[in-house]
Design a binder for these strands. Sequence first.
RNA 1: GGACCCGUGGUGUAGCGGUUAACAUGUGGCCCUGUCAAGGCCAAGAGCGCGGGUUCGAAUCCCGUCGGGUCCGCCA
Length: 586
Amino acid sequence: MFRSHTCGELRTEHIGHEVTLAGWVHRRRDHGELIFLDLRDRYGITQVVFDSITAMAHKVAEESRSEYVLQIRGRVRARPAEAVNPHLGTGTIEVEALEAQVLNPSRTTPIYIAQEGGEDEMIRLKYRYLDLRRERMQRNLILRHRVIKFMRDFLDEEGFLEIETPILIKSTPEGARDYLVPSRVHPGKFYALPQSPQQLKQLLMVAGYDRYFQVARCFRDEDLRADRQPEFTQLDMEMSFVDQEDVIQLIERLFIELCRAVVPHKHVPTPFPRLTYAEALARYGSDKPDLRYGLELINLSDLLMATPFQVFQQALANGGEVKGLCIPGCGSYSRKQIDELTEFAKIGGARGLAWAIVPADGGEVRSSFGKNLGEGEMSAIVERMAAQPGDLLLIVADQPTVVAAALDRLRREFAQRLKLADPNTLNFSWVLDFPLVEWNEDEARWDAVHHPFTAPQDADMHLMATDPGKVRAKAYDLVLNGYEAGGGSIRIHRRDVQQQLFDLLGITPELAQAQFGHMLEAFEYGAPPHGGIAPGIDRIVMILADESTIREVMAFPKTQQAVDLMTAAPSPVDERQLKELHINLR
RNA sequence: GGACCCGUGGUGUAGCGGUUAACAUGUGGCCCUGUCAAGGCCAAGAGCGCGGGUUCGAAUCCCGUCGGGUCCGCCA
């Protein structure tokens, strides 16, 4: 044994004990004849004192530098009252070194472990094994472990079985771009890495494993974002003989209890608020609204049906809408600031931004468009938006999707600027009644919004043939503080309904057979009604950890170009490897 | 594919047409028995991501390129 205790373990009760510690030199305070070393491991920090009387040990301390790995035998003693360190768990004691040896020296590290952050993320990722020594990353990875452990224990208690599914699976052109793995044995053929174990978990339902889950690694070859990595982890789940409400109830209990266990200082409003997809878009411009604050979109369309203002009039005439946000207390914004907001809205697709200011001193409303309005329209707008003196009104007129995108951006921007979102609230919510399909302009066809196995709502079945865009799906998203934290659905278990949907999606029987033949066949052998959900573990842990990127809760993440800076993956391979795989590079 | 931001000793920053390229921290040496971001003294360490251009003169301006980030597209 290299150690008798960890560096976070010793307390007053250990005083007088002889102990052996091993760890890294966190900091060194060299007073000449007396040297203090903070020895660190992942459990904590213990102060070790080297007196020159114990000459051999003292010499080791003298030669040691940051991040040297040391083993120290010593005696635990109380610190003098004035030398107690309240910031350390071990702060009431110290270890008087009797014997010490360097297990391994360290070069000067490119990042300083004892001091948090500040440096370019590039350097942290290149030397991730050093970055991971730091408290922040340890805290995040420990939290992640606790979250996953809680999920496993909870679902085990609920009768779920964790079943592994293959990583090498069949590629299907639906959805995200697949990562492909060439087959050596079958020239010209490829496996795909799973975007999620979707089909496999449904087949497990057919197989009678009526409560399945998996902490599943998923792969999507799409461009990265702060909350998107090419490989990520989902709590993949599926249940038989359930409806939407059963899934929702179970997940709600899971997250309420999880948060109580791992982040007890956070406030979780319950029950989780529920919004329909249509309502979420109408009120917040997003299907994943942050409900920690209001700042809702206000519809002005009906007030302006007869407006002489061309921009509004045309938008309404073309089936669009006019909506706005009332930003409290921002009436003092300058033209330059408003111009910047306009540019910001344009990123969201808006062609422009109409603004109005209700002066704080109660004077006339100033605006970019007031002179174009008809009689009484401005006062109607101010009244509808409940604008108070000192408020800024921002208005977008366009097609509903554009209005929603632009105002959603502005809503989130102002929530940040005005600090409207309480960082210690976890606002889980459900967004329900997603459309089953949406019209794809480019390809001129209907696409599945969720995936092609999602069941339509019974009440909307009659619209399948006549007005498919209006059919709602038995699909639901779990939203947390403005992030999509998970999505799921009740699946189609009847062959005839599946056929109807394939017809709608333009998937011919031949194509269906080639791509999903195994699924269709399986469903002919007694598929139970089933459904599930897949919460995104990285995103949820990110939010629980108060981080703003999922890289901070992953041990070895990739850059925006999907590169691992530490190992330099991806990398070229030997000609011989390519040859074995029957691959010629173009 | 596109927009924007960033790139200066090991690390973090300053410098924004003429500086011996500044500061902090870390690093090396010396001194120091109660520190915990220990302290004091001394020293070394970058030619400014890379390549071109403009200029008498470029870290500073321009063009390109590489790398990192945020976002749009994309993500059933």
